[in-house]
């Protein structure tokens, strides 16, 4: 098992997390641990759509994209974190407490960014 997969597995153990994935901004799934109804290709495609649309819209406002995007919906929450080479996507249920979760997500995000830099 590679380092990225191990880190995603670690994230999946956090209470309320329904799945996590590392996706490139052009929609390529690098690695994932998704539960239940979430499918790899759907999550990768939608994350790519959201990342590119947001970055394009930001172009008018700033030269930079975004470092983190937290999205609340009726039946779940999604957190996107820029890990330089790709994005970490975390899907949770709607009841999850955001503050402790974001601490975990940021920590794993930092370790993923380091892992992505290391030669395999």
């Amino acid at each position: 098992m590679n380092a990225i997969q191990e880190l995603l597995d670690e994230l999946r153990e956090v209470a309320g997390v329904s799945g996590a994935a590392v996706v490139t901004s052009d929609g390529i799934m690098v690695s994932s641990v998704l539960k239940g109804r979430f499918r790899d290709e759907v999550v990768a495609g939608l994350a790519s759509f959201l990342i590119t649309t947001t970055k394009r819209a930001m172009g008018a406002q700033t030269d930079h994209g975004f470092s983190r995007f937290i999205m609340h919906a009726t039946h779940g929450k999604v957190v996107l974190v820029d890990i330089q080479a790709a994005f970490l996507v975390v899907i949770t249920d709607q009841f999850v407490e955001m503050e402790p979760l974001l601490g975990e997500v940021d920590e794993i995000g930092r370790r993923l960014a380091r892992a992505a830099k290391l030669p395999s």
Binding site: L50, T54, A57, F66, F69, H72, T74, H75, G76, Q94
Partner: peptide
């Protein structure tokens, strides 16, 4: 644009309607 993209994403992801969000950057 961001609200619309988030709305589409949350519906297609089957997590219901997008209600609020925070985009963080420099």
């Amino acid at each position: 644009v961001v609200a619309k993209a988030a709305q589409r994403t949350s519906r297609r992801m089957d997590i219901g309607n997008f209600s609020k969000g925070v985009v963080e950057g420099d």
